[in-house]
Amino acid sequence: MPTPDFVLALRAKVGNDPLWLPGVCAVVLRPLAEPTEVLLVRRSDDGTWTPVKGIMDPGEEVGQAAIRECLEETGVQIEVDRLVNVGIIGPVHYDNGDVTTYLEHTVRASWVAGEPCVGDDESIDAGWFPLEDLPGPIPPADLAQIEVAVTNPRDVVLGGLPR
């Protein structure tokens, strides 16, 4: 998906000044009880593999955003199990001069239906990967998100993962 309209409207007012935006990261596992696979997308901008991520729409709840992003980006329907991490990404400096910091909400989710396909121009590939044989490269922060989701913690981690 291109930059959301609400972000473009904000940028028209604040220019390249720093923005604080809510984001979601969905670590989708299959099967959920004893996961053996994780859903990953290959980003079109840098070629890295990541869980499904996106900017939350105004007023959108975390679980709704994760469900929407997975469907839009991969065609996969998911069910959100729980929130497993809240942390900060950024500030991110973009080539056009924009600066954004994201409050990322990571959820552990399970596969419901659908097989992965590329759903928009943000990625060039999507698929299920065995947890013991993940593709590369995966940024360290994303590996940490996968690990915290797979280890099935009962508590939410607040900013404690490496970036």
Rank of each mutant, 00 (worst) to 15 (best):
M1K: 01
P2N: 06
P2A: 03
D5W: 04
V7Y: 01
R11Q: 14
K13L: 14
D17R: 15
L21N: 04
L21W: 02
P22D: 15
G23L: 09
V24Y: 07
C25L: 11
C25A: 15
V27Q: 09
V27I: 14
V28T: 14
L29C: 05
R30E: 13
R30N: 14
A33P: 13
E34W: 13
T36Q: 14
T36S: 15
E37W: 12
E37I: 03
L39K: 05
V41Y: 00
V41D: 00
R43V: 00
S44M: 02
S44H: 05
D45F: 08
D46P: 00
W49S: 07
T50F: 00
T50P: 00
P51Y: 03
V52A: 01
V52N: 03
I55R: 12
I55C: 11
M56N: 10
D57T: 09
D57V: 09
D57E: 15
P58I: 14
Q64H: 11
Q64C: 02
A66E: 11
L71A: 12
E72K: 12
V76W: 03
V76Q: 02
V76K: 04
I78K: 05
E79S: 10
V80Y: 12
L83N: 06
G90S: 07
P91F: 01
Y94P: 00
N96Y: 02
N96D: 15
G97R: 07
V99T: 15
T100P: 00
L103H: 10
T106C: 14
V107N: 08
R108D: 04
R108V: 02
A109F: 06
E115G: 05
E115Q: 15
E115I: 08
P116M: 11
C117Y: 09
C117Q: 14
D120S: 12
D121S: 05
D121Q: 04
E122G: 14
I124H: 00
L131S: 06
D133W: 03
L134K: 03
P135M: 03
P137L: 01
I138S: 08
P140H: 12
D142H: 13
E147V: 10
E147D: 14
V148L: 10
V148F: 09
V150Y: 04
T151Q: 12
T151P: 00
N152K: 04
P153H: 05
L158K: 07
G159I: 08
G160T: 07
P162W: 13
R163E: 12
